[in-house]
């Protein structure tokens, strides 16, 4: 469905230092800096897959999305989406993709949302029957039946995001690009949006590519993640696989009475106060049960909790591991 091979992209950026003389100097002459935004990006995404595309700000996420949606051309390498070269056959390409730009709206600000939908119907040349069916489905799944009669400027962010997503799906796209779809939403709306994306993927076998900083999105939606940093792909694999890699590490928090206890080999201290301790246990060295019995031998345990790595922590340690 989507195939990227050795994609490279370089940008030219103007540079200026602060200060009065620098400002005056740049008035006459400007320095440019070449920034390699993408280095040798290669990956393949199959039909119906849901992929989380993650990385810190400025890592190259949106450049990749822009190349895949045909807005940007690469310097070198090959990008084939749906059997087409996106930038070469823009119109036929984009009629089969849907894009949600997180913070930008495609709805007309001052008219009821349904009017925007009607216009999109004509822009994408959606047959009336298909439009009816899709609209009904989207209205019931996203629960926007009442909302669409209101002008977009009067909607809450959650309502608007749901309408934005609906607007991007009216034409039955085979691929959906979601750029931070849940940014700024409250917990309830976030869950509603996630549920909906999941349902769409299952019902229509839509391929979903999701960029986000919200690890709960990733955990709830995707099976595979691609990590990008400084323009390079650092990691590409199943989320469960990755979790396994980190599953041999457990975080243990203990509340106890008595004196401080000593840590055995395989336990790395995170914090130790009187009556409270938190540490990471490497289960390859010491098993969980052995660790617990060792602690309870030394002190009176009041409460103990053991947790595996969350996606959030994994990403933090990944960022640290790759120094990005």
């Amino acid at each position: 469905m989507i195939e990227l091979k050795n994609i490279n992209k370089t940008f030219k950026v103007a540079r200026r230092n602060s200060g009065f003389s620098e400002a005056a100097k740049s008035f006459f002459r400007r320095d440019y800096e070449l920034i390699q935004a993408l280095k040798d990006i290669t990956f393949t995404i199959k039909e119906g897959e849901m992929v989380g595309y993650i990385g810190p700000n400025g890592a190259g996420k949106s450049s990749t999305i822009k190349i895949m949606s045909g807005i940007l051309t690469q310097d070198s390498g090959e990008c084939i989406v749906n059997g087409r070269i996106p930038w070469k056959e823009r119109i036929s390409h984009v009629s089969e993709i849907g894009v949600v730009f997180g913070q930008r709206s495609q709805l007309w600000w001052d008219v009821p949302v349904i009017d925007s939908f009607e216009l999109i119907k004509d822009i994408y040349k959606i047959p009336p029957k298909t439009y009816r069916v899709n609209l009904d489905e989207l209205i019931s799944l996203l629960n926007i039946g009442e909302v669409i009669k209101t002008p977009a400027r009067q909607l809450s962010l959650g309502q608007r995001t749901r309408c934005e997503i609906a607007a991007s799906l009216l034409h039955n796209p085979k691929i959906l690009f979601l750029d931070e779809p849940t940014i700024g939403l409250d917990a309830v709306s976030k869950i509603a949006v996630r549920e909906f994306i999941k349902t769409t993927n299952q019902r229509h076998n839509t391929t979903v590519i999701l960029t986000t900083h919200d690890m709960q999105d990733i955990e709830a939606l995707t099976e595979r993640i691609i990590l990008i940093g400084k323009g390079q792909i650092l990691l590409d694999g199943a989320l469960t696989e990755l979790k396994k890699r980190y599953s041999d590490k457990k975080t243990i928090t203990v509340e106890y009475t008595g004196n401080k206890f000593t840590l055995d080999e395989g336990m790395t201290c995170l914090e130790q106060l009187k009556g409270h301790a938190k540490f990471v246990l490497d289960t390859n060295i010491l098993s969980v049960s052995k660790a617990i019995s060792e602690i309870s031998r030394q002190v009176e345990v009041l409460d103990i909790s053991i947790s595996g790595a969350t996606a959030e922590e994994m990403v933090v340690s990944l960022y640290e591991e790759y120094k990005i």
Partner: peptide, 11 residues
């Protein structure tokens, strides 16, 4: 003033 100086082409 500094802000204005940046726009050289505009000037």
């Amino acid at each position: 003033f500094l802000n204005g100086l940046q726009y050289r082409t505009a000037a």
